[in-house]
Nucleic acid binder design. Structure first.
Lengths: 151, 151
DNA sequence: CTATATTAGATAGGGAGGCTATGTATCGCA
DNA sequence: TGCGATACATAGCCTCCCTATCTAATATAG
């Protein structure tokens, strides 16, 4: 352990700076709609409740409540009562939501792909970047993936 | 151009989701102090004015004004009038600021290094991740280091 | 079968951080 | 000397996220 270098230190903080910059620019340009990441989670993991979504997303339940309400308002998701538990909700993507997700990906993906083509980086590099970011936020300093998610 | 794949699309949006998550977790845990990225810019590029800093950082001048005020308040930077132009300021890191920057890097860098050691990723991967994020925010859709702020 | 504890979600209130619009002081120049 | 341009500060607003708390429904103890 701890055999890290000064390079590690510089890169670690630089990564956060760059990540923040990327998020700011994406938001400022309206490249991704708010709630997009919730839709992505729903698509990848299927319908589930608000709390489970919050766990997946790494935010709090109230934050996710609001986010889901936004999706429902735009017609991108539905929220129904769980048949076996009237406390729970079942948040599901609508067809419109799925279509929006596809469209957003197509548009932003194209832009990013072109940018990468004008840089010395490949698709594999992009993949590595995503994986590194994932490593730093999934099992890092959070609760070790509690399995109270649902059945 | 445009020979991108569906994989590109997925990865591009996923990258933003992960980047946002990283930033949120770092902020929530107080791993990096606010204004840290301004200090990093100052260290790397030397003393300069508020507007120049804003350009470097990719934020607006009012935002940078506030950020710099915060640094000065904490004793991490000084703001003096430019000797040749009384309109301009010269923002400089103090020794305390430099020390804080070092300490923050050491602490967060250690944490990240250990996380990476428990993952299949190397220092080189971290480097790639930073470079990819940099590509996507520096010369992407912005003017290539133009000094024109635009309107 | 009630009474209580637990769980899912909603709402209230607040703070951080960013942006646009605008004000103020200084500089460059005709 | 007077006017546009430049550098920064301030005001007001918005988005996103958080903590604290409330309601409704379920699970469980007695």
């Amino acid at each position: 352990m701890s055999n890290h270098t000064a390079r590690h230190e510089e890169l670690a903080t630089e990564l956060v700076v760059r990540a923040g910059r990327l998020v700011r620019s994406v938001r400022a340009r309206g490249d991704l709609p708010p709630g997009h990441r919730v839709m992505a989670a729903l698509e990848q993991h299927g319908s589930m409740g608000v709390s489970a979504l919050a766990l997946l997303d790494g935010c709090t339940q109230p934050t996710m409540s609001t986010a889901v309400a936004g999706l429902v308002e735009r017609g991108w998701a539905t929220k129904t009562t769980h048949p076996d538990d009237a406390r729970s909700a079942l948040v599901s993507l609508t067809d419109l939501g799925r279509a929006t997700l596809r469209e957003v990906r197509r548009r932003y993906g194209t832009e990013i792909a072109e940018t990468l083509e004008n840089s010395p980086h490949s698709l594999a590099d992009l993949e590595v970047a995503v994986q590194v970011l994932t490593s730093l936020t999934s099992s890092t300093h959070d609760a070790p993936t509690d399995q109270k998610v649902m059945s």
